[in-house]
Structures are given as structure tokens and as C-alpha cells.
Design a protein around this nucleic acid. Structure first.
Length: 592
RNA sequence: GCGCUUGUAGCUCAACCGGAUAGAGCACCAGCCUUCUAAGCUGGGGGUCGCAGGUUCGAGCCCUGCCAAGCGCACCA
């Protein structure tokens, strides 16, 4: 309908250009909005206001010209001038009713669009280091990323969901070393665990696995392990050494490699990586998140991609050496300062593999590359964009979406999430406590760049405070009505219902139909603006209108004509709720 | 100190890429179950859109300054 009105308006404006009411060179963008107020008709347009200046006519007068030039259309009942120069359209109610037929015909395809057809788009999200289980912070990225990916797919894009696995680098070495040290404890060695090591219980479990499989094959004495290692930093109550925790752990990593030898070290390393990665995959899958690709950072190092990326930067003249390190001159490309890509000790920085990774993304031919990062990484954006430009690409291809942290609450009490305290909540714990549906809905209910307070108590509550159940309940109610219909021994005649749609004249019904008709626009806008929260907002609204309708009118009336028409309407509601919740990977219970 | 993000009802948040009288939920108050699930519905009070300027027909949205909060400013990831 919007498209039709746009066509009518542009026709009128072309006409006016020919009649020299409007200058021929004036550029117009016709935007049709749905009227908020029913008194303003169904649709509204403000072109007259924006064109007034170039036309050198008062807006209202110009609007009158446009209306006069507007071709007739049987769908448009009335056109009114209002306010400073708005053009309001009143559409034939019969046209609105058609959406019910459309929904019944298209079922799960209703709301899909083709704006993205033929375009490849990549969404990389979560990408947490495989050094421990996912926590609730990652959950938001997971829910947001997968909802966004689903939305993009719904509007036609060929979507590629990807998880970048940081399976190389110092953090992984720290994990491997932590595992090994826990293993040594298992073997009966005694020592003070490094303050910078990974202390989670899962590290012990991995150590246990290795111990059970290989016995004491990897054992070395604590004295041997710690000999000559720089002092650790520790608190007064633990002995009060004033050492350097970074130097301490780095020393231990080197020692682990020396004592174990490369093969054995890699074995321990891989055992940790594989176990944690399997756990993450399992966790995400249970959360309803599936990827097309798990991309390994290590692969970029072993297959020469990093070297290749650096040599491309070098030949483009963006690399230089200073103080023994290799620098990328990103400040020439919008970054605030230059960045090291190869450290003095010869090791690549994380940034170096990130450059290679984005080069790889570009080479795979995506029209759009979307990275979803935690908000704390925002400072990283300029350097990655700089890298893309240095590689000769348009940095507009990359969109970095930031996800703010969620603060966890249990009622009025804030839940501490510090890793140290050990009481941080994992995504798995969250799932178990509040369930997938509530968790996912809460995560995407708000704009991603907005902080959210996640109240565990609210998410689990089965009251009207909980928006998830509110929407699901609407769905369940429709199912319940259909069950009642069956129990009464009545049969629904969908075809008759379609023939009787004109019987739907109640204001509740008209409002509901209008909301149903908006669904495809909501999907398109949510996808285009990368804002799944618009969909959750819409679903709450649709549910609300349904509940209102439910309370105001009986569906299972004796008048079969009216009954069938109403049942067709509520079945359309059911379908749209299912489609919308489906995009968010939230279940649709038939009874609650 | 510099940069990014954000300031909307008591609380948590929306507002259709500049439009008409800024909307929901929660909380609070008053009502609705012999009728398809009350996890629901109806009504009510509640706002200088952080502050001050500017841009224009028109600003919560755009620009500038200030105030406040969060996050960044490594040869860490």
C-alpha cells in the first residue's frame, strides 16, 4: 500500500513538473508514514512541506496542487489536507482486510522480503576467547547477533554467521599453562598458583581429564617448574611479594614449553582448547545459536594469511620499523596513533591476525561485513577500518555494532560478575535459571547500544510483569480457542471466513488488522537498521491488541459467518506471532 | 587530558533514518472472572525530552558549548 501511494504521489509530482508548478530539477524523496492518529487517515505524507521552499509556494497551497494532480485510485477513498501541509490518505477498509488472506496463503513466508536478495552478508558475533565458559555478557551478543542474522535472512540476504575463534595468542598460552599447573597439582606437586592464571573450576576438570588419560606423563617437579621464574605479584595476606604477575606467567609459559617439549605442550594446549570450544558450541546451540562457520585464528597464522596481509600493507607503504617492532601507520587513515603488528620479540599482535581476518572476509566477497563487539572494544574500530582502507577496500563495507554490557540483578540486589570472585554467572546458568525464551527476549528487547538491567527475578516471574509470557500467552490463547472450537464439535470454515471478512467491523478488529499489515514493514526496518528490538516492541503491541480484543469480544459465537471471519483473524494473529517469535528463536507454546 | 557511547514519566525503556497532541511496561490508585486460560482487560494520575544556544516551515532526533554517567586511550586479548 505504501508503494502504491508513493507511485501515485510521484506521478502527481512529475505531472506538476511538466506543468511548471514545480522546477524540473527539484529532487524529491517521497516518504509515506503510517498515521499515528486515526483522525489523520491511514497514511500520511509530508512532501509538500519539504518541497515548499524549492517550489516557492506555501506548503498548504503546494499540497493542494499535489492533491489535485493525484491520479484516482479505487483503493484510496479520500485524501485530505491537514495541519501545515500534510497529505492524509484514507484507504478502503476492504483493502486492509486482504492482509488476512495474504497471511493465510503465505503462512511462514508472510513478512519476508526480497530487498537483500542476491547479496552476501556476514555477521560475526560472540567470538569470545576459548579460555573459559561463556558468561551472561556474551549472551547478549549471542541473542542479538543471531536475531539480527535471522532478520537479515528474512529480508533476503544470504547470511553467513561466523564465530572467530582466538585459538592462538598469549591468552591461550596462559590457559594451557594453567591447565598444566592444575595437572601438576593433581600429580601431587605443591606450589602457589599464579595470580594471573585461569582459576575457574573448569581448568581443574580439563587437568583431571589429562591426568586420567595420560597419568604422570607430563609431570615435572614444582621446584623445576618455578626455578628462576620472576616473582609473582600477590596480596599481603598471601605472602606480600611485590613481583610482576605478567612476567611471572610469561616465564611459566616458556618453562612449560621447555620442560614439556613442543609436542606435549601442544597436546595440553589442544586438550584445553578442544574441551572449552566444545563447551561453547554446545552452550550456544542450546541457546538456539548456530553458525555457518567457526573461523580459526591459528589457521591464519599457519596458512600464511597473516604474512600475506602484512606484505600487502608493506607494499602499500603502510608498514615501518621502529624500536625493533613493526608498526602499521594507521594514523594516516583515521586512527589516533600507529599500531604495532609485530612485537619486538617477533610475535604477531592480535591486531595483526585481525587484519588478516578482515582481509579474508573481504576476499570472500561479502557485500556487507558486520562485526558485533562488546562495547568495551569500541576504541578498536578506527584501526580495523584503517586496515581495510590500507588493503584497498572501502571501509563502509564494515559495520561494527557494539553491544553494551548487561547488569544482572536479582530483584533489588546486584549480582556480582567479577571473574575473580568466582560467582560470575555463566550463560549456561542463566539458561537453566530463566530459560531460553525469557533470556533471549530480554536480551534483544532493548537497543543493543543501550545498557540493560537484566533482572533474573523478573525474567523468571510468571506474572504480567514478564513481557515474554505476555506475547507467548497471546499465542497460547489462540490455540486454546481453537481447542474449544473442537470441543464444541464445531468446524472452522476458513473459506467462508474469507468471504465474510467484511463482517469484521469492530474497532478492535480494525486496529488488529492494521497492526498485522505493518508486520512486513517492521521486519524490513528492523533488518535495515540492525535493530531486533523493534520486532520485540511490535510483538508486544500485537499481543496487547489481541488480548484487548479477546476481552472485548467473543470469538466462538453462534453466527457461523461471523465466527469464521473472527477465527480467520485470530489465526492470522497466531501466524504473525509465530513468525516474529521464530525470528527471535523463541518458542510458541500451545498452552501455558 | 583526549576519544567513543549515552542522558526521555518515580523505575526500566520506545518513538517509523527531521513531522501533527512524545508513547509502552513496571510501580501506585479505582474497577472487570456463573461466558473462548485473570500469565488477561478497562480507567486514572503522572514529562522544562540533562542544561544553554544555533540550523528551518517544524528538533527528543541535526550542529556548537557546558554538565553528568559508562567505556576506551598497551610491543594485552
Amino acid at each position: 500500500m505504501k508503494q502504491k501511494l508513493t507511485a501515485l504521489l510521484s506521478h502527481a509530482i512529475e505531472n506538476m513538473k511538466e506543468n511548471a508548478i514545480l522546477p524540473k530539477d527539484s529532487v524529491v524523496q517521497i516518504i509515506i508514514e503510517r498515521s499515528r492518529d486515526a483522525a489523520h487517515g491511514d497514511f500520511a505524507c509530508s512532501v509538500a512541506l519539504s518541497l515548499a521552499k524549492s517550489a516557492k509556494l506555501p506548503p498548504r497551497q503546494l499540497a493542494a496542487h499535489i492533491v489535485a494532480a493525484l491520479p484516482n485510485d479505487e483503493m484510496v477513498l479520500n485524501v485530505e489536507l491537514a495541519g501545515p501541509g500534510f497529505i492524509n490518505f484514507f484507504v478502503d477498509p476492504f483493502a486492509h482486510l486482504q492482509v488476512i488472506k495474504q497471511i493465510h496463503e503465505q503462512t511462514t513466508a508472510f513478512g519476508l522480503s526480497t530487498v537483500g536478495v542476491g547479496k552476501k552478508i556476514q555477521v560475526e558475533f560472540v567470538s569470545a576467547n576459548p579460555t573459559g565458559p561463556l558468561h551472561v555478557g556474551h549472551g547478549r551478543g549471542a541473542a542479538y547477533g543471531s536475531a539480527l542474522a535471522n532478520l537479515l535472512q528474512a529480508v533476503g540476504y544470504e547470511v553467513h554467521r561466523e564465530y572467530y575463534v582466538n585459538d592462538a595468542g598469549r591468552q591461550m598460552d596462559i590457559l594451557a599453562t594453567s591447565v598444566w599447573l592444575r595437572y601438576l597439582e593433581q600429580c601431587g606437586e605443591h606450589f602457589v598458583f599464579p595470580s594471573n592464571g585461569y582459576r575457574g573450576e573448569y581448568v581443574r576438570e580439563i587437568a583431571q581429564q589429562i591426568w586420567q588419560a595420560s597419568g604422570k606423563d607430563y609431570q615435572h617437579s614444582a621446584a623445576q617448574v618455578f626455578a628462576g621464574i620472576p616473582l609473582d605479584e600477590s596480596k599481603a595476606e598471601e605472602g606480600g611479594q611485590i613481583g610482576d604477575k605478567e612476567a611471572h606467567i610469561d616465564g611459566l609459559i616458556l618453562r612449560a614449553k621447555e620442560l614439556l617439549g613442543l609436542d606435549a605442550y601442544v597436546h595440553v594446549f589442544n586438550e584445553g582448547l578442544a574441551t572449552i570450544l566444545a563447551d561453547i558450541k554446545d552452550d550456544l546451540l542450546a541457546f538456539g545459536v548456530a553458525y555457518e562457520c567457526w573461523f580459526s585464528e591459528r589457521q591464519l597464522l599457519t596458512d600464511g594469511s597473516v604474512e600475506q596481509a602484512l606484505s600487502r600493507l608493506r607494499s602499500a607503504g603502510f608498514l615501518y620499523e621502529q624500536e625493533g617492532a613493526v608498526w602499521f601507520a594507521s594514523s594516516q587513515l583515521g586512527d589516533e596513533k600507529d599500531r604495532v603488528v609485530v612485537r619486538e620479540n617477533g610475535q604477531h599482535t592480535y591486531f595483526a591476525s585481525d587484519i588478516a581476518y578482515h582481509m579474508n572476509k573481504l576476499d570472500r566477497g561479502f557485500e556487507q561485513i558486520i562485526d558485533i563487539w562488546g562495547a568495551d572494544h569500541h576504541g578498536y574500530i578506527p584501526r580495523v577500518k584503517a586496515a581495510m582502507r590500507a588493503l584497498g577496500a572501502d571501509d563502509a563495507k564494515l559495520t561494527v555494532l557494539l553491544v553494551q554490557f548487561a547488569t544482572l540483578w536479582r530483584g533489588k540486589e546486584k549480582v556480582s560478575m567479577s571473574t575473580r570472585s568466582g560467582e560470575f554467572v555463566t550463560l549456561r546458568q542463566l539458561r537453566n535459571e530463566v530459560g531460553i525464551d525469557a533470556a533471549r527476549f530480554f536480551y534483544v528487547m532493548r537497543r543493543s547500544d543501550q545498557h540493560i538491567d537484566f533482572d533474573l527475578k523478573l525474567a523468571t516471574s510468571k506474572t504480567n510483569e514478564n513481557p515474554v509470557f505476555y506475547v507467548q500467552y497471546a499465542y497460547a490463547r489462540v490455540c486454546s480457542v481453537l481447542r474449544q472450537l473442537d470441543e464444541k464439535g464445531w468446524v472452522r470454515d476458513s473459506e467462508q471466513g474469507m468471504a465474510q471478512l467484511a463482517r469484521l467491523t469492530e474497532t478492535h478488529e480494525l486496529a488488529l488488522i492494521g497492526t498485522l499489515a505493518r508486520y512486513p514493514e517492521v521486519i524490513e526496518r528492523s533488518a535495515a537498521q540492525y535493530e531486533p528490538h523493534q520486532l520485540t516492541q511490535y510483538l508486544r503491541e500485537l499481543a496487547h491488541e489481541f488480548h484487548t480484543y479477546y476481552n472485548a469480544h467473543q470469538f466462538l459465537v453462534d453466527d457461523t459467518m461471523l465466527r469464521d471471519a473472527r477465527l480467520n483473524l485470530i489465526c492470522a494473529v497466531k501466524q504473525v506471532l509465530a513468525n516474529g517469535l521464530g525470528l527471535l528463536t523463541i518458542s510458541t507454546p500451545e498452552s501455558m
